[in-house]
Design a protein around this nucleic acid. Structure first.
Lengths: 332, 332
DNA sequence: TTGTATGCGTTATCAG
DNA sequence: CTGATAACGCATACAA
């Protein structure tokens, strides 16, 4: 319960100045072997640990990276996070998570956290700027977005090539013989989803499926919205034979809706998702989907962030990773 | 991209001393109205924001709370977190998350983070001490554990009354007429699970079910372990008619195992879980379970932490909340 | 090789 | 009501 030892305690015990202690820690070769030993001993005795805050204040830079997430329960989040953490750790950085709950005010507080130097850089998991108003954008700390690009900004992005992935999904359905493929979960606001749809359209174009044979339903990426889309479709005359869903959650909703109506998947309908979240394995039938290379994304994001930390002149980049198709049981 | 404004910039612009600026911010009534206005104006112009790091260094206390989680993707985590965040925010604190991945070294780094003053207190989501070795335990910052008590320590705990919950679950099965109830997911290391089992035993005792009619299988709380337990049970002569699972994940595994063998739930077997995670609703049949009052837990945990922050003499407490039974479709 | 002194941005104490 | 100034714990330029 006593206060943590400071560098001064160590100095006193080792009978040297605090400068020497600091040097013994950061430049061991610049201090005589005998004094170095005394210092190390004193450190061991006192249990001294350098006060990260004071250090950051003095150096004007911390060794923490802040990850901003609107929703930590997003199944995509945790595995990307692990990729981030491992790479950060390998480079001497720690990772902190700020949960914004999609709330601008919270985001702003976290932003202050980093601009007051408590974190060196930012990883954004959200698809939008983390600021209430677009004020003070010029004071934005080094940042990189993952999973979903930041709309209309010059922030670097590391993620999956959504368009290529969308195309791959659609082509898989096409190759299975489907001609009438519905796109479920279209979004006006989420860039990643729009790109997936572009991939769908491109594949349909290439297969010479006329636009009037394409069905596109809007959604918000939730399980519930997938189920709802199925209901909507059953109000119509013509039904698709396959569902290409904007993400796995939507696909699970579609699966639920379909089986609730007594249909047998994949015999009567085919369904494909996107992301490959853990749940995709447990659902019945197991979901055929496009896999997010999550740990790769995390890794690349950190190394990108670190280089722009070293050299603030680095121009923003977009790193797109080609996703793989994971064939399971929901397509025939 | 210019450096953030400091208190000195504001002072210069308002033509006052930095002391006055600080006062105008923290004790507005102690400064003349006219100067106060000048200062506020200068603040607005410069976009000044007090540097949290310098402030914390000077004050020896920050307004951040660090939440340590071994596994972000734990479905129990996110909703407790929201409770924590809301209550913290209402009291002027921010919340940061440290993801330990159950790794002692990572935990240690986060611990340094708080002992260097970058966070005022700690919320533990894990069931064990967050230290490599139990060294320096006396220097432990104010902390409170949620969801799972910290084994063998004097850290305050806020969570569900696991024993009462376990008993409630068993009694529900008993009331449905079951006599042979298996307990799935026994654990030697996790205190919360042990308590749930004690509740089970208590209920069985009260119903005068002899110990030899009780079946207890070990598990680790995962979906997979639930499925495995079912396999094990089918190697035996006598089968239970009901499964009381240590948590929902295990229960879902049991459900999967049972339906994979072609059984109809709840007609042929009954299953009850514990936690009420979101997935419990989506599984078929929907899971009858014991609900964790998650946002209440979060709220109480923070207020407990804050009081022990004000007055470090507060003795450790154990706050146990009575959980409710949620009846859905997996018990008959 | 080591020590002294300064400053990072704040808050708080003490005079004026 | 306001201003100088010390201190928080550390790293480093400069002097010795």
């Amino acid at each position: 319960m006593t206060n943590p030892a400071t560098i001064e305690d160590v100095a006193r015990l080792a009978e040297v100045s605090i400068a020497t202690v600091s040097r013994a820690i950061h430049y061991p070769e610049k201090v005589a072997k005998s004094t170095r030993q005394r210092v190390n001993q004193a450190i061991a005795i006192t249990g001294y640990t350098t006060n990260a805050m004071a250090r950051s204040l003095r150096m004007g830079r911390s060794n923490m990276i802040l990850v901003l997430a609107p929703d930590i329960s997003d199944p995509n989040f945790s595995s990307i996070l692990i990729g981030l953490e491992n790479e950060a750790r390998a480079n001497g950085y720690g990772v902190l998570i700020g949960h914004t709950q999609n709330d601008a005010e919270r985001a702003l507080e976290y932003l202050k956290f980093v601009s007051s130097g408590q974190a060196a850089g930012l990883v954004l998991f959200t698809g939008h700027q983390p600021f209430g108003h677009e004020a003070s954008v010029e004071r934005l700390p080094p940042a990189v977005a993952v999973f979903e690009p930041v709309f209309n900004s010059s922030i670097s992005f590391v993620g999956v090539d959504d368009q290529a992935g969308g195309r791959k999904a659609a082509e898989h359905l096409l190759a299975a013989g489907h001609r009438h493929i519905a796109f479920i979960g279209d979004s006006k606001t989420r860039l990643a989803y729009q790109r997936r749809r572009q991939g769908y359209e491109a594949a349909m174009d290439a297969a010479r499926i006329p636009p009037q044979q394409r069905t596109v339903l809007a959604g918000d990426g939730s399980i519930e919205s997938g189920r709802l889309c199925v209901e909507q479709l059953f109000m119509r005359d013509t039904l698709p034979t396959a569902f290409m869903c904007v993400n796995d959650a939507t696909a699970i909703g579609v699966l639920n809706g379909l089986t609730a109506r007594g249909y047998d998947i994949p015999r009567e309908f085919s369904v494909i998702g996107f992301d490959d979240i853990p749940q995709a394995t447990y659902v019945k039938p197991a979901l055929t989907t496009i896999r997010q290379p999550r740990s790769t994304i995390g890794k690349k994001a950190i190394s990108l962030l670190l280089t722009s930390l070293e050299d603030s002149q680095t121009p923003p980049q977009e790193v797109l990773i080609l996703p793989d198709l994971i064939v399971r049981g929901s397509v025939s």
